[in-house]
Simulated scan of single mutants.
Amino acid sequence: MQKCAIVTGAARGIGLATAKQFLEQGFAVALVDRDEPELNKVIEDLRENVIGLPYDISIPENAEAMVADTLNAFGRVDVLVNNAGVADFGPIEETDFTRWRRVMETNLDGVFLCSQAATPALKETKGAILNIASISGLRASTLRVAYGTSKAAVIQLTQQQAAELGEYGIRANCVCPGPVRTKLAMAVHSQEIIDAYHDAIPLNRYGTEDELANVITFLCSDKASYVTGQIVAVDGGFQSTGVGLPALRV
């Protein structure tokens, strides 16, 4: 039977690039995104071996329905990619509880809910969970008190999943993207920000969506069959420089 992957936050960016790579590798794919109009456009372009599920994964019933609909369509779940996330940045003093919860309910609660819902099906296939965190979960930065904390929690959740689900043959890994050249990033990053990132990243550039998808699909593949509980920064070396100033590396 054809393998199947669920990818959340799949209507654009890293999620869409990942879904396309799974399709190229022969998977059936359930693309999940709460932006229904954009999701419908994507599904129309992809057409074969896909379903579009317009669910908000921060709602428990939606996470359950996501898995049920995927099983109904394809009969199995081999991979869950928890990619859906909210990037809401702001000063710590301006982050009220409502803003905090808006970030947490998608970035952390959603990962937990989708993983819990998919675990019985993943036991059947000895499948894989791949969580998307962020370089912001590995190192602190301004304006990211909610976002960075949510992503740090996803990293810990991944290790908990690896420790507890390994006995069922389920692998759990986490990818932490650094700056990625998405349409959204390019729309909001000024030239000054772009130049600063280039200076701070050893490879001197942003990553691409496909470069992230390459690592995601590898970690979900049989080629990574003995890899679990790992946190992989896909960031051009950004994490390796720590707090070192670019000027001091010359």
Rank of each mutant, 00 (worst) to 15 (best):
V7Y: 02
T8N: 09
T8C: 08
T8A: 04
T8R: 05
G9E: 11
A10W: 00
A10F: 08
A11M: 11
A11W: 12
A11V: 12
A11N: 14
R12H: 05
R12V: 06
G13R: 14
G13N: 15
G13L: 14
I14G: 08
L16A: 07
A17V: 07
T18F: 03
T18P: 01
T18Y: 02
A19P: 01
A19V: 01
A19S: 09
A19R: 00
A19C: 01
K20E: 10
K20I: 11
K20T: 02
K20N: 00
Q21P: 02
F22S: 03
F22H: 00
L23Q: 02
L23Y: 02
E24R: 08
Q25T: 04
G26L: 10
G26M: 08
F27D: 00
A28E: 04
A28W: 00
V29Q: 01
V29D: 06
A30R: 08
A30T: 11
A30K: 03
L31S: 13
V32C: 09
V32R: 02
D33S: 15
D33E: 11
D33M: 09
R34Y: 09
R34T: 12
D35G: 09
E36H: 08
E38L: 15
E38R: 15
E38K: 15
L39V: 13
N40E: 14
K41A: 11
K41F: 05
K41I: 12
V42W: 08
V42H: 07
E44P: 07
D45G: 05
D45E: 14
R47C: 10
R47P: 01
E48N: 10
E48W: 00
E48D: 12
E48T: 12
N49M: 00
N49D: 06
V50T: 14
V50W: 02
V50D: 06
I51R: 10
I51F: 08
I51P: 12
I51T: 15
G52Y: 12
G52C: 13
L53W: 07
L53N: 07
P54H: 10
P54I: 13
Y55M: 11
Y55P: 03
D56A: 05
I57Q: 07
I57H: 07
S58Q: 14
P60G: 06
E61S: 14
E61Y: 08
E61Q: 14
E61I: 10
N62S: 13
N62W: 07
N62R: 03
N62T: 09
E64D: 12
E64K: 13
E64R: 10
A65R: 15
A65K: 15
A65F: 06
V67Y: 02
V67R: 01
V67W: 01
A68W: 00
A68D: 13
T70Y: 04
L71Q: 05
A73I: 09
A73R: 11
A73F: 09
F74Y: 11
F74R: 05
G75F: 09
G75K: 06
G75R: 06
R76K: 05
R76E: 05
V77R: 02
V77T: 06
D78P: 08
L80M: 15
V81M: 03
V81E: 04
